[in-house]
Simulated scan of single mutants.
Amino acid sequence: MIRFTAIPTETARAYQAGSPDANGQAPERHIATGAGNPCRHCLKMIAEGAEMLILAHRPFPEPQPYAEIGPIFLCADACAAGGGTETPAILASPNFIIRGYSAENRIVYGTGAVVPTNSIAAEAAARLNDPRIAYVHIRSARNNCYQLRIDRA
């Protein structure tokens, strides 16, 4: 069994309060347009017309060669943490990149692939059956943006 995991609430609250992002910059405030603005904390799409943040995020505990930094969106106001065993609303594209990481936060080579969205749960579970894999990241197949983490339930 797997669990979809959002960025930690304390991280989201820090960004929402204006703390610097992974590049040392204040999160940018924008108004959501269209339907393609996924919040990485509540794991829902940010409603059109709502205020949102755009910032650089590193979903790893410390800098190292495999600790990718990239843009994410967040609700500008406090939102409840998303996650659980059901596929979150932010996974609305036809496919995503899936990639396994070790307990040392390094890519486990051979675990990355572009997979159809309806296969993410099965693909993540298969990777998590490998004892070398501590967790899985899901990234956009089009822009490589971090979406969420998948852990063992």
Rank of each mutant, 00 (worst) to 15 (best):
E51Q: 03
M52V: 03
M52F: 04
M52Y: 04
M52Q: 00
L53G: 00
L53C: 03
L53V: 00
I54K: 15
L55N: 14
H57G: 00
H57S: 01
H57Q: 00
R58S: 11
P59Q: 07
F60G: 09
P61Q: 12
P61A: 14
E62W: 10
P63Q: 04
P63S: 08
P63I: 09
Q64M: 13
Q64A: 13
P65S: 14
P65C: 13
Y66N: 13
Y66W: 14
I69V: 12
I69Y: 08
I69H: 06
I69Q: 07
G70H: 07
P71E: 01
I72K: 06
F73D: 00
F73G: 00
L74W: 03
C75L: 01
C75R: 07
A76C: 13
D77V: 11
A78M: 04
C79L: 04
A81G: 04
A81E: 02
G82P: 05
G82R: 04
G84E: 01
T87L: 15
P88R: 10
P88H: 01
I90Q: 06
L91C: 05
L91H: 08
A92F: 12
P94V: 08
F96P: 01
F96H: 08
F96Q: 01
F96V: 00
I97F: 10
I98L: 14
I98K: 14
R99S: 03
G100P: 06
G100R: 03
Y101Q: 07
S102E: 14
E104V: 06
E104K: 13
E104S: 07
N105Q: 14
R106M: 13
I107M: 13
I107H: 12
I107T: 11
I107G: 06
V108T: 06
G110T: 04
G110E: 05
G110D: 05
T111W: 12
G112L: 09
G112V: 08
G112N: 10
A113Q: 08
V114P: 09
V114R: 05
V115P: 14
P116C: 02
P116R: 01
P116K: 06
S119I: 00
S119E: 09
S119V: 02
I120S: 06
A121M: 06
A121G: 07
A122E: 12
A122F: 06
A124P: 02
A125C: 05
A126M: 08
L128I: 06
L128F: 12
